[in-house]
Design a protein around this nucleic acid. Structure first.
Lengths: 342, 342
DNA sequence: GCTTAATTGGACGTTTTTTGTCCCGGTGCT
DNA sequence: AGCACCGGGACAAAAAACGTCCAATTAAGC
């Protein structure tokens, strides 16, 4: 059932909205028994005229009966509402979930795809598609977009398609080398995105695990400095979110730091920063690129991550309080709201 | 799956059309490889401007990639088409069937609901709903609508709902008493419809199995004559279709006539007339009301019947050649087209 | 290499649809 | 009988859809 809806949504994006709207109206009419147009318009939050159009439609469909004294639901309407119930529960479930997370963390937008990325590769693909779609809607012309690495980001890159406003965009890595395998590195993701979207890209090649003085000298290099300035001019950043300990291991963080992270209760990792349960920064990877203050002042900070196991990490990053858009999956979303309740 | 679509169709009647349109365009683009807007507009039968809007939409959804040299399908688009296939096959299956029957018999419209009324009561209900919906769309103001009896017609009556243009309509029986049980008689159906639709009705009470002279004297009666004239002024007739032999038995046709019908290969019955395989009239029930020439000159002749067993009968009546709209179910429709092939 | 036919995307006036806002004649409740 | 609310008609304004051009660009054929 969900699959059908997901497919349909691609061919009719406002299908769900329209269904929700009409369902709400019909449902209101049912519980009201006999209700007038203006009263109804108030309670569903629509102007009189648009509600009138909807009512005319419902009448045309024979779902309501309208007399001079008001309108009531018809037998067919009642029957439809009954059939609609499971469908709507599903529909509303996710959108309700989105709204709950959105308002609690003060985000601009939350998108939840059904499923669990941990168990279903298909869900991860959906996550990528949703991420690409969000990005497509948000980019302006000639914008700079900073991206991080990770398998989820790779999926986003894969699902990007050429869009006119993206032609002039620059894709850059948010931070320097972060010790991942080549195909999941930010540099690779940035270039893939640029190719897929028809944009341009600039890379930042910084070796991992350099000493402090080596970094200092790198920063002196005019070419490096120039690209870092360029990166910091980005107004959009798209990043994955990881579990702190998993990321620490994967990036071969040294034992002392790992232990310190564990002791301090590190939960999440995003763009090279480690966060605890309350969204405080515990540690910063020794590499260059976007600083946390750059991210705080961004126009659009888009976090993309899914899977039940990442739920807590996502909540931690959201708690940090500078995300704008979250793209996640159902399993992770439930974990996030569960943490809100406890 | 079908159920979902049927439910959705009630809230978004043109959902299927839109999906079909966009699927067709996307599919065309895929098979064409690289194709231009105008060329595409020709092959899918749309004007350039509307196709352009569709193309913009598909691009926005990331389903196609459009370059200066033309447009081609994207990975996501290809994937979607694949997922869409079973859905569309189902969708197109019925609409293709509708179109095939429509064009072959030169009808104005054919509506096929999924299922088989013989085995599923739910399908019969759907048939009734579809019939009611067609009627709602076709009636003008202050029109006279002639109806016949039968269980299918009773279902149509049940699903009628008040509609403004129907307020001034008259519902009348197409023919006099046809020896059915009270609740399935044309008179009962007409009055039920009028009550459901908020219209008015006039009845025609004629005892069954009267002698010729009795009919003649009835016709002299000014009240009867007046209502018959009224009935003949109807521009819309909605009728069921039955199997000849089944109907003959149910109506207690005398043995000689029954035998004569059998000998002549009577297949179908509609509004009191019996038809053979080629749509010729074999016999006419001895009762008054609409004559066959009245029906021939009607604006809208709407036939409603379903069930695999009625397939042949429906085909016979269609063959007679004066139907305008057919509402049937999938099982019957397949029987009809099977007869076309043999 | 040049021509030619086809492509997209922009522009603009026209037509159709949607929307906001009245008001009128009823209906039902008090 | 009074009153508050009802549906529905009407109409102008705003918005969206549409038909129809045209300019810049690209691919392919010659």
């Amino acid at each position: 059932m969900r699959e059908i809806l997901d497919i349909q949504k691609q061919l009719l994006p406002d299908l769900v909205d329209t269904m929700k709207k009409r369902y709400t109206i019909l449902h209101h009419i049912m519980v009201s028994g006999l209700v007038g147009r203006r009263t109804l318009a108030m309670s569903v939050g629509a102007t009189e005229r648009v509600l009138r159009a909807e009512v005319d439609f419902l009448k045309e469909q024979g779902l309501i009966e309208v007399e001079a004294s008001g309108m009531r639901i018809s037998g067919a309407g009642r029957e439809l509402l009954e059939q609609l119930e499971p469908l709507v529960k599903d529909l509303f479930g996710l959108t309700e979930l989105e709204e709950r997370i959105r308002s609690h963390f003060g985000l601009k937008q939350v998108i939840i795809v059904p499923g669990d990325s941990d168990v279903s590769p298909h869900t991860k693909k959906e996550l990528g598609r949703a991420g690409a779609s969000v990005l497509r809607k948000l980019v302006g012309e000639d914008e700079t977009i900073a991206v991080t690495g990770g398998s989820t980001m790779a999926e986003v890159a894969y699902h990007l398609t050429p869009a006119t406003p993206m032609k002039g965009c620059w894709f850059v890595p948010a931070r320097g080398g972060l010790g991942e395998s080549v195909e999941l590195q930010a540099n690779t993701i940035a270039s893939t995105m640029a190719k897929k979207a028809g944009g341009r890209y600039r890379l930042l090649h910084v070796p991992d695990h350099l000493g402090e003085e080596a970094y200092q000298s790198l920063m002196q290099d005019s070419h490096i400095a120039e690209i870092i300035t360029f990166i910091r001019g980005a107004r959009i950043v798209v990043h994955g979110i990881g579990e702190a300990m998993v990321m620490a291991r994967r990036r071969k963080v040294d034992p002392e730091t790992t232990e310190s992270l564990r002791r301090d209760g590190a939960l999440a990792e995003a763009f090279g920063y480690y966060f605890d349960r309350d969204g405080n920064i515990l540690h910063k990877m020794p590499t260059i690129g976007l600083r946390i203050e750059d991210i705080h002042s961004m126009d659009h900070v888009i976090g993309i991550a899914g899977g039940k196991s990442k739920g807590e990490s996502i909540a931690s990053v959201l708690k940090h309080g500078h995300e704008d858009v979250l793209v996640t999956d159902e399993a992770a979303a439930w974990e996030v709201v569960n943490r809100l309740l406890s």
